[in-house]
Design a protein around this nucleic acid. Structure first.
Length: 193
DNA sequence: TTATCGATGGTA
DNA sequence: ACCATCGATAAA
């Protein structure tokens, strides 16, 4: 069962929290792949200088200003893609970047799905999916194994140093202890056999 | 282990 | 010119 529109029609930070544990489903080409979300980042609106919408309405950012529950996918550094979920009410240009998932179905357990670029590569998400309605059969989210409050860890967003003070806001959320988070907070010691 | 560097193309 | 990244390589 797909998550309802009401799930997305909330502030980005709330959605970023609630997306932890949810399943991202891409079912195309006779191949269903599912990842459980373990890391997200909230981009809260036009006033958020880290948010692409801070540049105003452009062909690229238009989807952010539109209704919630749509995909915002963009190309970064010419070779990777980043997948976002558009949040909040129409007119509020906010979104949640999915930064990491853990393989659940249709992917090798060894597949690298840590990092926004790697997870898009693993799931086959490209610009072709930009602006898709997330109620789609082929691309949507479902409830997954829930993440409890004590498992939620927070910190500053990655790679947004250009955003000044906004780069310091703790809008990055991840599942404590997950082996699939893109940048673990503490360098854990090398596992021993 | 951390640090640096460059690939590569849409967007403005 | 810039970039919500990644992987290869170098340095330590």
């Amino acid at each position: 069962m797909s998550l309802p529109l009401s799930f997305y029609a909330r502030p980005a930070l709330t959605v970023a929290r609630e997306l932890l544990g949810a399943h991202l489903v891409v079912d195309e080409g006779g191949w269903r792949r599912v990842g459980r979300i373990v890391e997200t980042e909230a981009y809260v609106g036009e006033h958020d200088l880290a948010c692409h919408a801070a540049k105003g309405r452009t062909p690229r950012t238009e989807v952010l200003f539109g209704p919630p529950g749509r995909a915002y996918v963009y190309l970064i550094y010419g070779m990777y893609h980043c997948f976002n979920v558009v949040t909040d009410v129409e007119g509020v240009a906010s979104a949640v970047l999915v930064r990491a998932v853990e393989p659940v179905e249709g992917l090798s357990p060894e597949a690298r799905t840590d990092g926004p670029g790697r997870l898009c590569r693993a799931l086959g998400l490209t610009l072709a999916h930009n602006r898709w309605d997330l109620a789609s059969e082929r691309l949507h989210l479902e409830a997954g194994r829930a993440v409890t409050e004590v498992e939620v860890e927070r910190g500053p967003r990655i790679g947004v140093d250009y955003a000044g003070e906004w780069a310091l806001e703790p809008y990055r959320l991840w599942v404590r202890g997950s082996q699939h988070v893109s940048r673990p907070p503490v360098r854990r010691r090398r596992e021993r056999a």
